[in-house]
Design a protein around this nucleic acid. Structure first.
Lengths: 195, 195
DNA sequence: ATTTATAATTGACCGCGGTCAGTTTCCTTT
DNA sequence: AAAGGAAACTGACCGCGGTCAATTATAAAT
């Protein structure tokens, strides 16, 4: 018989999250130290790991929340009808992903479900992004010789690709948006056909 | 006036690399411990870091070497003329990248040049892959409405994408090759045109 | 051969993520 | 109100990557 979760637990968890967000606001995700977080939250180190599997589990939660907020804004928009509009619409998501190199790497590492049962917060945002893109691309404004699901999978691949290039010291003659525009134009409207 | 590098240095470096390869052969890249390597090499811990900036710098070197060997095999092949042949040709590269989840993550993290001056071994293999792909795609057997450089950039993006999906607990109804075939077919021969 | 400058090596030490046996707090049962 | 048991919390401890002042080996200069 499982006991109900205590109010104290929720408070401690909230204090840990608040402390972490405070540290991150001051110094960024990469600079976050578990010891600093527990100090500010006023709990012992072990308590942190009673609430989160490891340091990355908390970061995943926080970053997942930020990505979800970006997707909320994106979903509130009308479906984009051309490539520039798609890129424009995706900018809130891009902003989160390029905010820190460390964040991008962490997102990549957690983009896939590690286990069938346990789909992490970031993996969930990837599924959600795929769904949003799929809806846009199913409207029939882009190429129709392949499924919208395949198209959206490809858009995600290109999105990751250009962000990776964005962090590369070479490849900086073009902006992220320019590179993405070229790729998506060729992917979604091959041969320059349709409108 | 710079002194010549001593023979002793090269020997120590070689012993460190050999020890690391030994450990990796036994237990994999992720299990490699600097302390185990220096123990087997018969040197102090500090010596390791006199030869390699950090643990990842050595791993980058070793993995970069493996990727280069794969690219050697790939370059020895005749240029593939269709999508299945491209996928078949890329398999040595894929094999390295999917050998360990940890290896894939490390490769992604080092795929871009960190600084203009210092292009790491793995970033170099990405440039080389791009070049090999570019040559294949410039032969005119695939779509010609966009540059071969753009095509090869896209192929790399899809390659990374399907490997990421390969490590995902979901998306396992299709094999890596099947997913890659769908994407590349749509990317390189949109509308099913040409041969 | 001796001195001298530099390169190479050493290992005690630190920072930080993560563990776990022991303690405290909370809630239920009687 | 007391007892019993489970959940929450604690902090000393460990593993491992990485640092650096001190030491030793090497080769050039005299």
């Amino acid at each position: 018989m499982t006991r109900a979760v205590q109010k104290r637990t929720l408070e401690t968890r909230a204090r840990l999250i608040a402390a972490a967000e405070e540290v991150i606001a001051e110094a960024g995700y990469e600079a976050m130290r578990v010891e600093e977080v527990v100090l500010r939250a006023g709990v012992a180190k072990g308590t942190f790991f009673a609430h989160f599997r490891d340091k990355e589990a908390l970061l995943e939660l926080l970053i997942g929340t930020r990505i979800d907020a970006a997707l909320d804004r994106i979903e509130a928009l009308p479906a984009p009808a051309d490539v520039p509009a798609i890129i424009e619409a995706l900018m809130p998501l891009v902003a989160v992903m390029i905010s820190e190199r460390y964040v991008f790497d962490l997102i990549l590492r957690h983009s896939g479900a590690a286990g069938k049962a346990e789909i992490g917060p970031i993996a969930q945002t990837f599924a959600r992004t795929d769904q949003v893109l799929g809806e846009w691309l199913a409207l029939g404004l882009f190429r129709r010789d392949v499924t919208p699901a395949l198209l959206s999978s490809g858009v995600q691949a290109f999105l990751i690709h250009v962000i990776a290039l964005h962090f590369c010291a070479l490849h900086q003659k073009q902006t992220l948006q320019e590179m993405l525009a070229e790729l998506l134009q060729a992917w979604l409207l091959p041969g320059g056909t349709r409108a």
